[in-house]
Nucleic acid binder design. Sequence first.
RNA 1: GCCUGGGUGGUGGAACCGGUAGACACAAAGGACUUAAAAUCCUUUGCUCCUUGCGGGCGUGCGGGUUCGAGUCCCGCCCCAGGCACCA
Length: 831
Amino acid sequence: MESRYVPKDIEEKWQGYWRQQDLFRVTEDPSRPKYYLLEMFPYPSGRIHMGHVRNYTIGDVVARFLRMNGYQVLHPMGWDAFGMPAENAAIKAKTHPAKWTYENIDYMRNQLRKLGFSYDWSREFATCDPSYYRWEQLFFLKMYDRGLAYKRKSYVNWCTTCQTVLANEQVEGGACWRCDQPVVQKEMEQWFFKITDYVDELLDYTEKMPGWPERVLTMQRNWIGKSTGSLLRFPLSSGDGEIEVFTTRADTLFGATFMSLAPEHPLVPKLCQGRPEQQRVLEFVDRTKQTKRSDRLEGLLEKEGVDTGSTCINPATGREIPIFVANFVLMEYGTGAVMAVPAHDQRDFEFARKYDLPIRVVIQPEQGGAVPAPETLGAAFEEDGVLVDSGEFTGMPSAAAREAVTRWLEQRAAGKLTVQYRLRDWGISRQRYWGAPIPIVYCDSCGTVPVAEAELPVLLPTDVAMPASGVSPLPDYQPFVATHCPRCGAAARRETDTMDTFVESSWYFARFACADHDSAPLDPPRVDYWMPVDQYIGGIEHAVLHLLYSRFFTKVLRDMGYLKVDEPFKNLLTQGMVIKDGSKMSKSKGNVVDPDEMIKLYGADTVRLFCLFAAPPERDLDWSEQGVEGSARFLNRVWRFVADHRSQLAAVRPYRGGGELSGELPALHRKTHETIKKVTEDIRDRFHFNTAIAAVMELVNLLYQVSETGAGATVRHFWPVARAAVEAAVQLLNPVVPHFTEEIWRQLGYSSSLVDQPWPTWDESALARAEILIVVQVNGKLRSRVTVAAAAGREEVEQAALSDDKIAKFIAGKAIRKVVVVPGKLVNIVL
RNA sequence: GCCUGGGUGGUGGAACCGGUAGACACAAAGGACUUAAAAUCCUUUGCUCCUUGCGGGCGUGCGGGUUCGAGUCCCGCCCCAGGCACCA
């Protein structure tokens, strides 16, 4: 055994051994408890980064821990391989996205191997492979049959840089999630998945997922944005139609003094048709439509509008009210029309002041001062209260009035109670090349026709040249576009949009259960055995995107009979970012730490150890070179102890109890078992790897402190007890630093792999102490410590405390009012 | 504005059910070994006061409260990070 720890040799050796023995291949075994542990699979961007290393290390520790605890652990890895960066890189390097992608996969797979992760590599797949996306195309067809995939013309988010449409979830603060450039609205025909059909179930289950962080659930609830209210109809004064509005404040209806429409509202052209206002209105509409979505959404714009010249009737008051077009009304929420109640809505208030529109106060607070008259009103009163000036509803509280007013209109077919959601259908068309083709054909006589199932997959052609402009080559590539109609056989044209890459990641977790299945997307016995994922680990950035889409897809696949679970991920851990010098690692900041370099310098085990030791998983991890060196130093300390005492350690069997210990040995024996207990509980119950590692460090520190001469009369037990401590440390550290511990395990004389050893158990009787330390407080302040027999009763402990020298000083001559005794912990003397 | 986290030494972080605040590590200082350095080992290390002790006071963002006892529970604030936001 080398006297110094040299990671390189032993890491390659054991990686080769695990691979050759195929130790982490797993099959279904109904006799053992299963555990499906999954980390979010990476996009093959070229090289893994520290965020991946951290994510996958956390997962690997749990996987290895559970495996040693007798679970059948599914721990797979694959590649989220479709996406824009491949196209951009291919254009730049004058190569093909497929070549670029597969080369990256090869490189990154090798990086993951070098980190020693315990994946079942036999299940690996890349989503850009036809054997994967063919099933996704099948799901599309089945969704099309069920009306869950449909095409519609609408305003969509268009990223001019990426030259494609984006789903609402992929627009962050008005900018593209990928390139951070502003997104504009464009009217286009697009394919959608009807996620809104599942909106209630998606929302309800956020209350039934105790294994998810509250933060993520809240973000999803906000995104779904359920609000209950009323749909109310305002007839046009012309008698020619009506305007429908959504409002959560039907109680303020009597105060609605004008109407605001979104610029995109379909009635706008008609309302101003042939009027003197027409030109101004249309100009205003054009100007507003061209404003960047980011500005419109961020509420930065001043509220502006223009009178259409038309009016409608407030159904409650019967009065004629003007109809405005306003820049703050969004077509995509509610009906694109808002009844304006300036006295009770701040936006309407500002608008009314600006254009000198009437203000009517119809709600007064239940207690306290009254809302001032419109002329002196400084801001809208937006709270609930009691209705005034509201006909038969005057005197009614807001909450009751909301329903009553709506029911009253309902009798005249002018209103109904309803629920609105912020969630829109998921737009999945992408005007990109490197994605799964949407299996649809357009025929001049038959229209939109789905590709026959038997003709799947619709292969993405791989012999195209990538145009330097960045636009998709597909629409101009005749061998792909030109086809026949599946229905009538006539010449027809293929859909050239591809699917959003989030579609691939919405079901890959199920495919891992049966990655080699080639007669259907999923193999029921295997999928039912493994699903759901017991523990999912990944970054918080997918809180809404990937995690919401996957939940939706799981429910769709369930309803199609492919899955039996309602939710894909039972427990979710969102790990923090890896930061350096206080900010996220990025090329522009020049603070990127390269995993390859770290492995070369310190070895994979040290990198893994540091990732786990420096912070608990859900918090951000501050990368510190000095911290990494500390981790390396600790491994060296363990190594040195074994190397320096190998002959003594190898000559004995580990102490397993029996026979009295004296001197320092009982403490070491107890510490060994305390450590087993703490590490087991920290990993199993809390994923607190940092404190688990700290506990092993304490054990190792103690091991260095005790010496043969301190063993007293039982010196013959010294090496057995020491060996038991070393073995425990090595076993407990195995999930964290698997190569390092495997090597030491063999050096201790074992011939079978540590990976196959059962997790160590602690002996309760070894934890027992003859004497315990009791803290003594006087009036809640720590004043002394006394040692008493562990079995000592309340009285005895109290006596020991009261008769302590230091305590005597504090209580001399004073009356004791009370003595609180917490058995095994402390005594508090209250004067 | 709303929602969710969080605020503990010079730093990363411990303290799990209300019971010794600062485990473990990093950094720093001093010492040992060495011709020297590296490596390693030992000691000190929250602040502060004095009479330097097995001493006292203070201390977990701020202000209150509950309790024998509060980093932990309650009320009211402040600050930081993330998410959402003209959503009717």
